[in-house]
Design a protein around this nucleic acid. Sequence first.
DNA 1: GCCACTGTTAGCAT
DNA 2: CATGCTAACAGTGG
Length: 271
Amino acid sequence: MPELPEVETIARGLEPRLRGRAVAAVELLHRPLLRRGGPKALAALKGRRILGVRRRGKMLFIELEGRRTLVFHLKMTGQFLFSPAAEPRDKHTRLVLRFEDGRDELRFHDIRKFGFLLCVDGDPACACGELAALGPEPLEIGLPDFAALLKQRRARIKALLLDQTALAGIGNIYADEMLFDAGIHPRKPASALSRAAVGRLHAAMRKILTQAIAEGGSTLQDFRDAEGREGNYQDSHMVYGRAGEPCPVCGSAIRRIIVAGRGTHFCPRCQ
DNA sequence: GCCACTGTTAGCAT
DNA sequence: CATGCTAACAGTGG
């Protein structure tokens, strides 16, 4: 579930509640979650203060003193929630961060167990090939670079939008929404887009992601921010999850097809 | 109960 | 190399 806007929302919510707090312990409840660093690296976080929380693509970074970083990928069902230490833990809780002030604890909850954690000493990009290979941020890439990127790829435009090495952070929902906004068919080869279409897609990408962040992301089933709140952007979805409903622009029935192995929603007339 | 479906991506086949 | 499918997991809904 969490794509760029959801992870950004989580990071912004975690930051003020984590910054400056010292870690008392990290409890790993599901061993496979930890893909880099090992239990010793987690133990070495004791006593260190949290300096900040950032996002890169769909990954979330908790930065600590001494160049240590916890890198989380939430995959489909990862969530963070603060709870009083006395409150019973859900069976899907995979990791708990306890603090020296003892006010509450941060729990990482992940039903499907696809999420992962890296505990890194130094530059996170050196510890994870996937992280090092991430493409540019969609909200930072300029139009000339975006156009050059599309020009050199023959894959379907939707597959390119989902390719994290091309652009970092776009997932299934926002790929469909930005293609609709730009009036582009999801199966169109990226290199075949006209100059005008590339311009529309660049603008749509910025508009959709910016609005989604402003709305706190989209909640379809699981997504909650660090305060347990749902996002609101699902109310603004034009095509995602609306197969069979009339297109908000032209009234044609929204269709659902499979592109790049993913359920894909689009208007056959506008796109 | 069984089957189809789900927001991600790694790994393998083509 | 580039691209496309499928499996990994667990839960939900028909």
